[in-house]
Design a protein around this nucleic acid. Structure first.
Lengths: 286, 286
DNA sequence: CAGAATTTGGAATGTTCATTCTATTTTCAA
DNA sequence: TTGAAAATAGAATGAACATTCCAAATTCTG
């Protein structure tokens, strides 16, 4: 009895860490498994989503076996129980919808190493990974509709006003640079010379506004944005939440998720978006 | 008992059935919600994946509220409890498994081949792909040595001067922002108020300079950089070629290859590099 | 400013769930 | 065919969990 739990199936091997590895292991050992466990193997391969979200009882019922058989199956693959195996199936769901989550987990592991050694290359690796996942989720969330709507707002504008302060200022500056290169009239609201209010004074409904702001939202941005909107200036917001102060009142909101705190963000995603807007606008042949 | 379920909060409205509808409802009612429920609203919008998979206790802890507040939140939106609301968040995960971003990226490349013209999503896809590969080659070319050398130059500096104009200005601005957040003294040479020369006048060998410039090199950068180097200011260059005007005289050169022309570049790579330098410097415990 | 209504924190409750245990059946070897 | 070993079913157990409840605090309202 004692040696069973010490040298039992759970201790024989260590469990696969990611879904693909687990899937491969199940497929390989399928033939050598006892009858009921074969049933379970087939079900898990065919219905990974159910395994990820359902309870033991549900999986057992749908497989046509007892709950204990499910647990035995998990233990046969090195897990301590069904719950542990389920995590692997859940990681697959998470990876599919939000690549950044997966990256975040990978980052955590890297972090532990980098804190010990304070190795700057690990730090760079982390930011590169962050930027990668931010770009991926940008591509997932942006739609053709949104981009076309944005271009439709910008195309007829006489002047394009850009509002991005604090940590978002580089994005606004870059957009200003590109738009000017393409021959558009741009007003970058940077507050230099004192009055950010004065800079935007001439904005009308014939113009357009692109505002960029992420948590924690820069006070001047929060103050100025509603003013311009109230004056009828059509606005595009690039932000990190639908609850952002610049989301309400905007004709169009680009929501970039999983933005890290200010000092940690790489700005890769908003810069790419802004770049695509500018070039897309130019290609649209104004 | 009976009238409780008939006239209780759960019966006031009927709950949104799919994720997008729920998301919209949360965003809309956010302002009218009591304080704690607002917190919950923000968390659910920002971390839908966590809500889908975690327990009430976990969500509560991460939100910073009591478990009961989570349940109240769910009931406020017409659900009978957290479990019921969680189903909606789970449906999002299940729906998201199929279309992966890789497939989408691949499709974009196909679209792009046919004609880049007029399809803004294809344009975005192209920039995202560009940024991806730029980040990868950054990670390949950067060495631990270089990064450590850079940090060794920056750590003892009294003031850090940043020189990046034209298309590179957003990179310099971002580096300035992050360094200041970390408590470093920074002078951003932006030429505002006329004299970029005056701004850099106080730079000495006790300070340090980070210069960023890509083709075609901005004239003021080309002019000012050798001046500062001649005065003994230790310089780090971030550029696209060893033949760049800011490569000669620099203590250290980060060479980023394959930089597209000014209006087409996304700046993802230099921004990441600069970010890693700043954080690496901070971790080095100056 | 007083009273009512709402909101909130935190513990108590009762349910659901994964896991374990044991008797029984099945399989295999001699 | 018989004995031993493995596998299985199903109930028992104990832990984890969502939910409820109530007192305290806060916010509205007259």
């Amino acid at each position: 009895m004692i040696h069973e739990s010490a040298a039992g199936p759970a201790a024989t091997i260590q469990p696969p860490g990611d879904y693909e590895a687990l899937r491969a292991a199940i497929a390989q050992r399928h033939g050598a498994l006892p009858g009921r466990l074969q049933q379970v193997a087939e079900f898990t391969l065919d219905h990974p989503t159910d395994v990820a979200l359902a309870t033991v009882a549900e999986v057992a019922q749908r497989t046509g076996v007892q709950p204990s058989a499910i647990v035995r199956f998990a233990r046969a693959f090195g897990f301590n129980g069904f719950t542990e195996m389920q995590q692997v199936f859940r990681s697959r769901l998470v990876a599919g919808v939000a690549p950044s989550y997966k990256a975040r987990l990978a980052r955590m592991k890297r972090d532990e190493a980098s804190i010990l050694g304070r190795r700057p290359l690990a730090v760079l690796g982390r930011f590169v990974a962050d930027a990668h996942s931010a770009l991926d989720s940008l591509l997932q969330s942006a739609t053709e509709q949104d981009l076309e709507a944005a271009i439709a707002i910008l195309a007829p504008a006489r002047d394009i006003y850009l509002l991005g302060l604090g940590g978002s200022y580089p994005v606004a500056a870059h957009l200003a640079y590109v738009l000017r290169k393409l021959g558009r009239r741009v007003v970058l609201l940077d507050g230099i010379g004192g009055g950010i209010g004065e800079q935007s004074h001439a904005a009308t409904a014939q113009d357009a506004l692109v505002a960029i702001s992420f948590r924690s939202y820069y006070p001047d941005t929060v103050r100025l944005f509603p003013e311009l909107v109230a004056r009828g200036v059509p606005a595009i917001a690039i932000t990190d939440s639908l609850l952002s102060p610049i989301a309400t009142g905007a004709r169009l909101v680009f929501e970039l998720q999983d933005m890290p705190e200010a000092a940690m963000r790489t700005l890769a995603a908003p810069l790419c978006l802004v770049q695509a807007l500018a070039i897309g606008l130019d290609l649209a042949g104004d």
